[in-house]
Design a protein around this nucleic acid. Structure first.
Lengths: 112, 112
DNA sequence: AATCGTACTACGACAGTCGTACTATGTCTG
DNA sequence: CAGACATAGTACGACTGTCGTAGTACGATT
């Protein structure tokens, strides 16, 4: 079984999170489940990686947090949601371009 | 100008080096030039990254070093050459498989 | 009563990469 | 003939994204 190494993915966890947030604001647990689903169970982001990505990206201005009720009927329990900013959208676009280049380059060193 | 970030490439410098060494033994400066050429000048490996990769990979048994004359006429000047080992070839194959998987997964989070 | 799912936070370790700097020799150029 | 440039490295510490471990809290399920 081949596993995705943390070295490769490094820097692209942010991209995955932003991809989810492009559609609508979301929160940790939900984002984690979506990444698992979208990747066909091939990639599970670690909790610590996820939450430290939130902190970093909010500091960098790529996302904004706000709290909202877990239950729409509002029983007091809150969750921290994140929404992507314009800077985040721009950063995401750059990462997509970078990915195209990187993919192209690394591919030249891969034999199958 | 989009640049390849060190985060993405992380872990794949080793793969590039091994790819070069699959053909024949080589040494630092030459490998560095080949990586630049093969990547169409799109990627330049840093000297420190290159040489620390040698140290690490030799420790892991993926490559072996030996010294040889710079000049075939042997004027005394020596260079450190590296040759790939069987373990190195196996590691390279694994990285290629890993790359296929990683590429597939990340691609799902990229829009263009 | 205990387990599981949800929803986090804290903290320190790890490791590949990078920046900076330094050494040394040979060759090319003005 | 001096200075720049190419070759061929070594040394060392900083950076940072990721990971391992651990702990908290609450509701629902069994």
């Amino acid at each position: 079984m081949v596993e995705i190494s943390s070295d490769v993915i490094r820097g692209y966890n942010d991209t995955m999170i932003l991809f989810i947030l492009l559609r609508e604001p979301s929160y940790g647990y939900e984002i984690s489940k979506q990444i698992r689903t979208i990747s066909d169970e091939k990639y599970l982001i670690k909790e610590t990686t996820l939450y430290s990505a939130f902190t970093r990206m909010e500091k960098n201005g790529y996302i904004e947090s706000f709290t909202a009720d877990q239950d729409p009927n509002g029983n007091g329990k809150k969750r921290t949601y994140y929404r992507i900013t314009d800077a985040g959208r721009e950063y995401y676009r750059e990462k997509c371009e970078e990915w195209a280049l990187t993919q192209d380059v690394i591919q030249r060193f891969i034999s199958r």
